[in-house]
Design a protein around this nucleic acid. Structure first.
Length: 199
DNA sequence: CCAGACGTTGTT
DNA sequence: GTCTGG
DNA sequence: CCAGACGTTGTT
DNA sequence: GTCTGG
């Protein structure tokens, strides 16, 4: 996934997790770009700002977070950086669109992908907390990616995992620890639920 | 056993 | 922290 | 793949 | 001869 997504219509922020007011307040300080602060919904059903780029709790150097913008769904349960977060600290990143850049002979063309109805969706994410030497907590997240659906494929070879609404509650359920079941959510969104436009 | 890795995509 | 490569 | 082992445990 | 470490 490219280094950017959008929350274009704050007024349409859904209330599926009871976080409308929290999110609207957070938006003022949000910037949906890597290394910046963006709102996420946690398993505590709280909306909170976190930095985009997961720093594992055991990391010696927080700079590794810059390389952890995305987590490939394939094999995610085998990776030291993501194995435990997959079990205990999943999150949802609310968005109304995401950008991808298509490489062409004439340069890169920027596309915006949204739902046909322009409603909000949620990316599947993982988060972790890193404590710096001064004891300051640094909460970070990553967005899971998967193969592109038929709408995204002409533009890019990866796309963010957009959860089916029916799977969102289980993704945030603290008591849900069935990894194969959770992994079954991490697939491309059906093509008819996404539209593209040159941005 | 110890040392070293641990990650993926983009720069708007 | 935990796994893997050597 | 090729070279080298052909065996296992544990700890300042 | 066959397995493993590199």
């Amino acid at each position: 996934m490219c280094g950017r997504y959008a929350l274009l219509n704050p007024n349409k922020i859904f209330d599926r997790f009871g976080t409308v007011n929290q999110l609207q307040q957070l938006m003022a300080n949000a910037d949906m770009r890597p290394t910046q602060l963006a709102p996420v919904v946690t398993m505590d059903r709280q909306a909170t700002l976190m930095r985009w780029g997961l720093i594992p709790s055991w990391a010696k150097d927080p700079a590794v977070g810059q390389k952890m913008i995305n987590a490939r769904a394939e094999g995610i349960d085998q990776k030291p950086s993501f194995r435990k977060p997959l079990r205990v600290s999943r999150c949802i990143i609310p968005a109304t669109g995401f950008y991808e850049w298509q490489a062409t002979a004439h340069g890169k063309v920027k596309y915006l992908f949204t739902r046909p109805d322009d409603e909000m969706f949620g990316f599947a994410g993982l988060c972790d907390t890193w404590i710096d030497p001064n004891g300051e907590r640094r909460e970070t997240f990553t967005i899971i990616t998967t193969a592109p659906n038929e709408i995204v494929a002409p533009v890019h070879d990866r796309m963010p995992v957009i959860l089916q609404q029916a799977d969102e509650a289980a993704w945030l359920d603290k008591d849900e620890d069935d990894v194969p079941y959770l992994l079954s959510f991490l697939k491309p969104l059906p093509a008819d639920e996404l539209v593209a436009q040159v941005a």
